[in-house]
């Protein structure tokens, strides 16, 4: 596999690409970090309101979505390993599975939104709901971008490219790992 002209080797190119993604994920951590900080201050100011509103969240659907995203992370990690071992067919299949789970996640999220709006809970229905729609909405946009990024990987399947896309996908999974307890569980 050939490397870009301005890199001495594919190894160095791959390293630079991963480092670039990690630095970008650092900026994403700050974006979501600000919102998690806002959540903490709302929780301190309006504990009763948040607690009451959380009873209306779709706990089963949200929990199902957590399992779906965790599974998708495992699939893309397995896909990277398959590709490194040059099992391209399997890698492609696992990657397609990852994207499919991402789409299922968005579908379930859409069902949740519909159920909330039908019940009268909109982004203007109080502190909990404005944060809920903002944070899960921003996360859903990230899932959508993740699916788009992974679909680009399908066209030119190479380990040093897929591992960078996979880093982004795992990050999106981690954000949800924290959104789940804050909006559904406790």
């Amino acid at each position: 596999m050939s490397h870009a002209e301005h890199f001495e080797s594919l190894e160095k190119q791959a390293h630079a690409a991963r480092l670039g993604m990690w630095v970008f994920l650092g900026s994403e951590i700050l974006l979501f970090g600000a919102l998690f900080g806002l959540y903490a201050s709302y929780r301190a100011h309006y504990p009763a309101e948040l607690h009451e509103a959380m009873h209306h969240s779709e706990k089963v659907l949200g929990s199902l979505n957590t399992a779906i995203l965790l599974g998708s992370s495992a699939l893309v990690a397995a896909s990277v390993e398959m590709l490194r071992a040059d099992r391209r067919g399997l890698a492609r299949l696992l990657l397609a599975g990852t994207m499919l789970l991402g789409l299922v996640f968005l579908l379930v999220k859409g069902l949740e939104y519909r159920s909330h709006v039908t019940a009268g809970f909109t982004p203007t229905s109080g502190e909990f709901w404005s944060l809920y729609y903002t944070m899960t909405g921003l996360h859903a946009v990230h899932v959508l971008i993740g699916i788009a990024v992974l679909s680009l990987m399908l066209f030119d399947l190479a380990p040093h490219r897929l591992e960078v896309g996979a880093l982004y996908w795992h990050f999106v999974d981690i954000v949800w790992i924290f959104l789940w307890p804050l909006f559904y569980l406790a």
């Binding site: 650092g26 700050l30 900080g37 903490a40 201050s41």
Partner: peptide, 19 residues
């Protein structure tokens, strides 16, 4: 890169919580 981002985020959230 990760630790730097986490330290910055912890500073941000920490100051918000302190406020």
């Amino acid at each position: 890169a990760l630790v730097a981002a986490l330290v910055l985020a912890a500073t941000l959230i920490g100051l918000m919580v302190a406020d």
